[in-house]
Simulated scan of single mutants.
Amino acid sequence: MERPLPILRAGPAREVGCDPTTLRRRVRSSGSDRLVRVGPNAFVEGVRWDGAGPRQRYVTRVYARLGRLGTPAVASHVSAAAVHGLPALSGWNAPVHATVPESMYRGRTPTLVLHTRPVPPAERVEADGVAVTSVPRTVVDIAMSDDLRTAVVVADAALRSGIGTGCLRAAVHHRSRGRRRADQVIDLADGRSGSAAESFARVVFLELGLPEPALQQGFVVDGRRYAVDFWFPDQGVVVEIDGRAKYTQERYLAGRSPTEVFLDEKRRHEGLLTVPGVRAVVRLEWRDLFDPDALVRRFRAAGLPCPVRPIRSARPAA
């Protein structure tokens, strides 16, 4: 689970001589004692905030809010996904989401969204003193309230983490609004998708009317086995999702330089084209998935049938 940054609040801070006025003054400071306000009566040391990533910053805001709302509040939806380490298709610039009893419901604000679907004890877990919806409940909440792309990305990640499909189905209440969408998401979810980009791509392919591809298909080239992201056997087309992290992050570099990784990928690409039955290899970046018109042109040029004409961009609405 993702842990928050240490949060300072006015009450306990008085014990070390840091009253509310001093905390607010430190927010305005530009020195080493600077604080960042992360919620009502909640502050984080500036140096810690500057060194944190987007997910940890968002999780910190979740904890700051949940501590304010009180015990009955349960972090849910995208906020629970962040705590559980699940991905977010639209990033972490989102309001805090919490599920509360109906008696606490006060609508939504730009920074806080409240939900009221009951959370039984079996569907909540404790994380550093804060209640969070379980992974299956989180997936179902997102499936019933968000778009298909976002929901499939989260559901695939849950399956990759070891959650079973049966657990996801058990979290769908038969009387819940949105249960049909939740069932659709669970039907589409596949833990073999290796990343959020691959999950997103599968939904885009579905929207474009492409045939259903095989995932992580293995090919042997010169004694080496390569698993490709998507394989369309009837058309002989391989589709790979390339991310820049492959050329920049150490976990992918594995001691190699970016140039060496690039050359290895080039050799891999050329090797796949020598496999009998492979006619074309299409390489996509994350940004390509947001331009379905260009995708259709590339897929048709490679021999993939795209019967559906894109009627809108995959780019999320502003």
Rank of each mutant, 00 (worst) to 15 (best):
F232T: 14
V36I: 15
A314S: 14
R26W: 13
S257D: 04
P120V: 11
V221E: 03
P6G: 09
A131L: 14
R179E: 00
G194C: 08
R61Y: 03
G166Q: 12
G178N: 03
A42G: 14
L86N: 03
D187L: 02
T248D: 12
R14L: 14
Q235L: 00
W231L: 04
P87Y: 03
A122N: 11
D19P: 13
D128Y: 10
P87A: 05
G53D: 15
S161Y: 06
V239P: 08
S176Y: 10
L168C: 05
P258D: 06
A81E: 06
R175D: 13
L304F: 09
R224W: 02
T165K: 14
P316S: 12
E123D: 15
S32K: 08
G243R: 01
S193A: 15
P72Q: 09
C167A: 15
L148E: 14
D33G: 11
L304T: 08
G191M: 03
E15Y: 10
V38D: 05
P4C: 09
A201F: 02
A302D: 12
V185P: 12
A75W: 07
P6I: 02
V47G: 10
F290D: 15
R268K: 11
L206W: 05
H173C: 01
T109I: 04
M1N: 12
G243P: 10
A73E: 02
E126N: 06
D229G: 13
F200N: 07
V296P: 06
P276Q: 12
A155H: 02
G11M: 01
V204D: 09
I186A: 01
P54N: 03
A143R: 02
G107F: 02
R179G: 00
A317L: 13
T165R: 15
V203C: 04
G236L: 08
G164M: 13
L208I: 10
R160P: 04
A280F: 02
D229A: 05
P307T: 03
Q56C: 10
E240G: 11
E45T: 00
P110S: 01
V154E: 06
V185Q: 08
P101I: 04
V239Y: 12
V296N: 01
L89I: 04
A75M: 03
G303F: 01
G191H: 07
T71P: 09
G164S: 14
R309H: 07
P305N: 05
R14D: 07
P12E: 12
E102T: 06
L66K: 11
D141T: 00
V47C: 10
P292K: 07
V130H: 00
A94V: 10
T71Q: 13
S30Q: 14
V96W: 04
E102F: 10
L86H: 08
V132F: 06
A182H: 09
T22C: 05
V36A: 08
S30I: 02
N93F: 02
E240V: 08
R256W: 00
R298P: 01
T109H: 00
G17R: 05
R37P: 05
L114Y: 07
P40G: 04
L69K: 07
A170W: 06
A81R: 01
